[in-house]
Amino acid sequence: MDSNSGQKTKIGVLLVGHGSRLPYGEEVINGIADIYRKEVDHPVAVGFMNISRPSIPEAINELAAMGVEKIIVTPVFLAHGVHTKHDIPHILGLDNGSEHHHHHEHEHEEFEFDGEIVYTEPLGADPRIAEIIRERVKSAI
């Protein structure tokens, strides 16, 4: 079943997390990726901005090795901040030479990908997130 056969470009998705010395964030992002993979037909990878592995460049290389031609990068962050506006675009090579970024462990790693990279908005204020909050509060009452 090749659902991409009718498409001009083979798409891959990269979910980006912050990264941490603690395992919890990594477990959550990988869990979200597992749920998402069951709902889509394209390859899905996870990459971390800092500390955790795989790094963003490693994840891009993983998708490139699968033959994707376009990678849609989604930061799994609630809101924009320095990381989503500056650090991640810098790692992706989308920052047009911007000098404003933090120094992170993975920032000097490189990737081999000649295709298109599309960087999306973070999760944002979404009614589905509010529904999760309602469920959490209801279970605590």
Results as ranks from 00 to 15, higher is better:
42 H>S: 14
83 H>I: 10
49 M>V: 01
96 N>M: 06
91 I>V: 10
94 L>F: 06
138 K>T: 00
88 I>W: 03
12 G>Q: 03
54 P>N: 15
140 A>N: 03
130 A>G: 05
21 R>I: 08
94 L>G: 03
57 P>Y: 02
98 S>P: 01
119 Y>D: 07
97 G>Y: 03
24 Y>E: 15
81 G>Q: 02
114 D>A: 15
46 V>Y: 01
100 H>I: 11
87 D>T: 10
45 A>F: 04
28 V>D: 05
117 I>M: 11
88 I>Q: 09
86 H>I: 00
85 K>D: 13
15 L>Y: 00
94 L>P: 14
63 L>T: 12
132 I>T: 11
76 V>F: 04
50 N>C: 08
124 G>L: 11
36 Y>T: 06
40 V>L: 00
70 K>C: 15
59 A>V: 08
44 V>N: 13
14 L>P: 09
34 D>K: 15
57 P>M: 03
22 L>R: 14
20 S>Q: 01
77 F>M: 04
15 L>H: 07
68 V>Q: 00
95 D>T: 06
129 I>L: 02
97 G>H: 05
11 I>E: 13
50 N>W: 12
101 H>L: 06
95 D>Y: 05
135 E>K: 09
24 Y>S: 15
43 P>D: 02
134 R>I: 04
75 P>S: 07
2 D>R: 12
129 I>Y: 02
127 P>E: 05
109 E>P: 09
25 G>E: 14
105 E>P: 08
91 I>D: 12
19 G>Y: 03
70 K>E: 15
88 I>N: 03
81 G>P: 09
23 P>W: 05
92 L>W: 04
127 P>S: 11
49 M>K: 01
48 F>E: 03
33 A>W: 12
24 Y>C: 10
61 N>K: 13
108 H>Y: 01
39 E>Y: 08
122 P>E: 01
44 V>I: 14
112 E>M: 10
94 L>E: 10
120 T>N: 15
72 I>E: 03
102 H>M: 09
8 K>Y: 07
39 E>R: 12
31 G>H: 10
90 H>A: 02
38 K>T: 13
126 D>I: 06
85 K>N: 15
87 D>E: 10
6 G>K: 09
100 H>E: 11
101 H>F: 06
55 S>W: 11
122 P>D: 00
82 V>N: 09
39 E>W: 02
16 V>E: 03
123 L>A: 07
6 G>L: 13
11 I>N: 07
41 D>P: 12
111 F>S: 02
137 V>L: 01
14 L>G: 10
136 R>A: 00
111 F>R: 05
46 V>F: 03
85 K>M: 14
9 T>D: 10
13 V>W: 01
118 V>A: 10
2 D>W: 01
2 D>K: 07
107 E>A: 01
29 I>E: 12
26 E>A: 14
85 K>V: 14
69 E>D: 07
127 P>F: 00
64 A>E: 07
125 A>L: 09
108 H>N: 15
135 E>A: 05
132 I>N: 05
73 V>M: 01
88 I>A: 02
133 I>E: 04
107 E>T: 03
95 D>E: 08
26 E>C: 13
132 I>F: 06
94 L>A: 05
101 H>G: 07
